[in-house]
Deep mutational scan, measured.
Amino acid sequence: MDETGKELVLALYDYQEKSPREVTMKKGDILTLLNSTNKDWWKVEVNDRQGFVPAAYVKKL
Rank of each mutant, 00 (worst) to 15 (best):
K59Q: 14
K18C: 11
P20L: 09
Q16G: 07
E3K: 12
L33S: 02
S19L: 07
L61R: 03
T4W: 12
A11L: 02
K59N: 05
D14F: 04
D40L: 13
Y13Q: 12
N47P: 10
E3C: 15
L34A: 03
V53W: 00
V44T: 01
Q16A: 12
V23A: 05
T4E: 12
D48K: 10
N38G: 09
D14Y: 04
L12M: 09
N47T: 09
Q16H: 13
D48Y: 09
K18S: 10
T32P: 15
W41H: 03
D29Y: 06
T32H: 09
T37G: 09
A55T: 05
N38R: 08
L10Y: 11
F52R: 03
Y57K: 06
A56V: 09
E3P: 14
T37W: 09
E45Q: 14
Y15E: 00
V46W: 08
G28N: 06
Y13T: 07
L34W: 05
L61K: 04
G5Y: 12
R49E: 05
V58A: 03
E17I: 06
V53R: 00
Y57A: 10
L31I: 07
K6C: 14
Y57M: 11
L8C: 11
G51P: 00
D14Q: 04
T32R: 13
V58E: 01
I30G: 01
K26Y: 11
I30E: 03
N35Y: 07
L34Q: 03
D40M: 14
G5N: 12
V46Y: 12
V44N: 01
W41C: 06
K39R: 11
A56N: 12
L61H: 05
T24M: 04
Y15M: 01
R49D: 04
L10S: 04
G51E: 02
A55C: 07
T32C: 10
V53M: 01
F52S: 03
V58S: 01
T37R: 10
I30P: 01
E7M: 13
G5Q: 13
K27N: 05
K43E: 13
S36H: 09
I30M: 06
L33N: 00
W41M: 05
N38V: 05
R49G: 04
A11S: 05
M25C: 06
V23S: 02
E3M: 13
P20E: 11
T37P: 03
L12T: 04
K60N: 06
W41K: 02
R21L: 13
L61E: 04
W42C: 04
Q16R: 11
P20F: 08
Q50Y: 07
L33K: 01
P54T: 01
K27R: 11
M25D: 00
V9P: 00
N35R: 07
P54I: 03
E22M: 05
Y15I: 01
L33T: 01
A11D: 00
L8S: 07
V46A: 15
R49N: 05
G51S: 02
D2V: 15
M1A: 13
A11H: 00
K6Y: 13
R21F: 13
V44S: 00
L31D: 00
F52A: 03
L33Q: 00
D48Q: 13
T4N: 13
V58Q: 00
F52C: 11
A55Y: 03
G28F: 04
L61M: 09
E45G: 08
E45T: 07
F52V: 06
M25F: 10
Y13A: 10
M1C: 15
S19M: 07
T37C: 14
V9H: 03
N47L: 12
W42I: 04
S36V: 07
Y13F: 12
L34E: 02
K27I: 05
E22F: 06
L12R: 05
K59F: 09
L31E: 00
Y15V: 01
Y15N: 01
K18A: 10
P54V: 02
K6R: 14
E17V: 06
D14W: 04
D2Y: 09
N47Y: 13
R49M: 07
L61C: 12
M25K: 00
K60S: 07
Y57W: 06
L12G: 02
Q50H: 08
P20W: 09
T4C: 15
I30V: 10
L8Y: 15
A55E: 03
K59M: 15
G5A: 13
K59Y: 10
V23P: 01
I30T: 06
Y57H: 06
K60Q: 08
V53H: 00
V44A: 01
L33M: 03
V53G: 00
L10W: 07
P20Y: 08
A55K: 06
K6H: 12
T32F: 12
D29T: 08
E7I: 15
K27D: 02
I30H: 04
G51V: 04
L61G: 03
K43W: 14
L10V: 15
T24E: 03
D40Q: 13
K6E: 08
E3Q: 14
E3L: 12
L34H: 05
T24I: 03
L8T: 08
K60L: 13
P20T: 09
D14I: 02
D14V: 02
K39H: 11
M25T: 03
P20D: 11
D2P: 14
D14A: 07
A11M: 02
E45I: 09
M25Q: 01
L61Q: 05
P20K: 09
T24S: 15
